[in-house]
């Protein structure tokens, strides 16, 4: 059985383990052939920022994982327009191609999904 799964990423990539551990859940969902979409809201949009350098905080830079999602048939990535604007980010600042959605469109996106994971 295939369900429409939306993974909502709400937090900055570092500072907590949520972003890193969310990637594992996405990949397992893909292995189970689920219909996967990812949404980045609030500080979660920072997860997709290009040119991350984590050497100063002794953390693994895992931002390349987002570019690899395509190989796992994870191709539907959405970001919040409001979150991007509030943080001074443009689409060209991100490591992957995304669809930018307004908060109203995000509401519809959530309605369309069977399952919402929250990280």
């Amino acid at each position: 059985m295939i369900k429409k799964c939306l993974y909502v990423n709400r937090r900055a990539p570092y500072g907590t383990s949520y972003a890193l551990e969310a990637i594992d859940v996405v990949l397992i969902g893909s292995a189970f052939d689920q219909d996967i979409s990812l949404l980045f809201i609030d500080d979660g949009v920072f997860q997709l920022k290009s040119d991350q350098d984590t050497t100063g905080i002794e953390m693994k830079n895992f931002s390349s994982a987002y570019s690899a999602f395509e190989m796992y048939d994870v191709e539907k990535l959405y970001v919040s327009k409001e979150a991007m604007t509030a943080r001074g980010l443009k689409k060209r600042d991100l490591v992957v191609d995304v669809e930018v959605l307004s908060d109203n469109a995000i509401k519809d996106l959530m309605d369309e999904h069977d399952v919402i994971f929250s990280f």
């Binding site: 059985m1 369900k3 799964c5 594992d24 859940v25 397992i28 969902g29 292995a31 189970f32 689920q34 399952v115 919402i116 994971f117 929250s118």
Partner: peptide
């Protein structure tokens, strides 16, 4: 066990509550 248990559970359930 593994994360597959979460995904399988989501597939078999009516609702995931986090």
């Amino acid at each position: 066990s593994g994360l597959g248990q979460l995904i399988e559970g989501v597939v078999l359930s009516d609702r995931l509550v986090v």
